[in-house]
Amino acid sequence: MIITRRTFVKAAAASGAALVLPGTAPGAPPAPVMRAVPSSGEMLPAVGLGTWITFNVGDDPVLRDECAEVIAAFFAAGGRMIDSSPMYGSSQPVIGYGLEKLGRPEALFSAEKVWTSSAADGPAQIEQSRRFWGVPRFDLVQVHNLVTWETHLETLFAMKADGRIRYVGITTSEGRRHDLFEQIMRAHPLDFVQFTYNVVDREAEERLLPLAAERGMAVIVNRPFRQGALTRQLQGETLPAWAAEIGAGTWAQFILKFILSHPSVTVAIPATTRVDHVRENVMAATGPLPDASMRDRMAAYVRDL
């Protein structure tokens, strides 16, 4: 789907993904753009924190403290959603360590996944993940990569009905199984869907993003930088002068602003090990976002590099 100015506004209205620029106290860093979760109206900052690879540091005390500093900077910049999975090695206990060190920040929006081929093991895995995080309950639990999705979704909807989690979702990445993903989106009342979308991986614009708006589902965008490969690839290229028009000072912000400017996107979850990068990422959700014509210009510029 090509986004024109008209479809852009229409999709924004249909998705309920209201864009809110909150007021900022004098001297405080600008607050990030907030987006609504369509199923509840809850507002979330549009940039979250992914933990794939970056938080898998095992028992290394130095690296655990570095991760805690990233989490602290993320909350200080106004972030809320942290996303992880049992597949991510030690990321869950490392998040738990960071949250404990920071005194359990109230702003946290915990997004987890269930990832086991055994349907019966799902509840135990979610409980183990909860203990690692040290939270009373998860805000969101998603079926990771659609693994054993039928039975895990039954479990998650039952947990939501009991008040043991607040939202239910499904995930995929790198364009895999979009046909099945779409079928599940059509058949089940999901709160969140998560998939890959960025200035070069735009397959989701065809069906998944419009469908999420139509079905009232929040969208989490993973791999915004292609696991760092995209920013590394662009590192040697000059950021166009017109990027300043949308307040993008770096390639990372350029890419994030492109993603966040799609009206169906709720939260993008870049992962990082660096405090300066996490600040830069959240800052991408402040200031102006590109309109439809600017989005076309951005995509064309990157494509032609």
């Binding site: 970056t54 898998n56 290394d60 597949m87």
Partner: peptide
């Protein structure tokens, strides 16, 4: 690369520790 769960820095720090 999709099966790699950790960064080179974390891997070599394992040996250091």
């Amino acid at each position: 690369e999709d099966f790699l769960l950790f960064s080179p820095r974390v891997y070599w720090r394992l040996f250091e520790l």
